[in-house]
């Protein structure tokens, strides 16, 4: 079991969370060329090692999170709210 420290709820089992996917993807503008959309949707770095990914605390606070996790050891380095504004607000209120 991976334990994920949710910034809102505290450390919980990963079974409380839903896995999103690769969090490093940046989607292009809506009117960007098809190749850019193709690359964003279909191609992956598929890192073996530390990668940024999205998880949602779906059985908890329902926040979407950006998690830095090692895909080989499953070690978690950092967790923060995926939405920048929420992440900043939570930082400020610490």
């Amino acid at each position: 079991m991976i334990r994920i420290p949710c910034p809102f709820c505290g450390e919980r089992d990963h079974s409380e969370f839903s896995y999103g996917g690769d969090g490093s993807i940046e989607y292009p503008e809506l009117d960007a060329p098809a190749e850019q959309w193709h690359d964003a949707i279909f191609l992956r770095e598929n890192i073996r090692g530390m990668q940024t990914e999205t998880w949602q605390h779906s059985s908890g606070c329902r926040l979407w999170l950006l998690v830095e996790r090692d895909t080989m050891t499953h070690e978690i380095r950092s967790v923060r709210a995926a939405h920048d504004g929420i992440a900043r607000a939570m930082e400020a209120s610490r």
Binding site: M1, I2, H14, R48, T71, M72, H74
Partner: peptide, 11 residues
């Protein structure tokens, strides 16, 4: 979740 580890989880 994505993983290269050849070991599974309990859920």
């Amino acid at each position: 979740y994505k993983s290269y580890a050849q070991r599974g989880n309990l859920p």
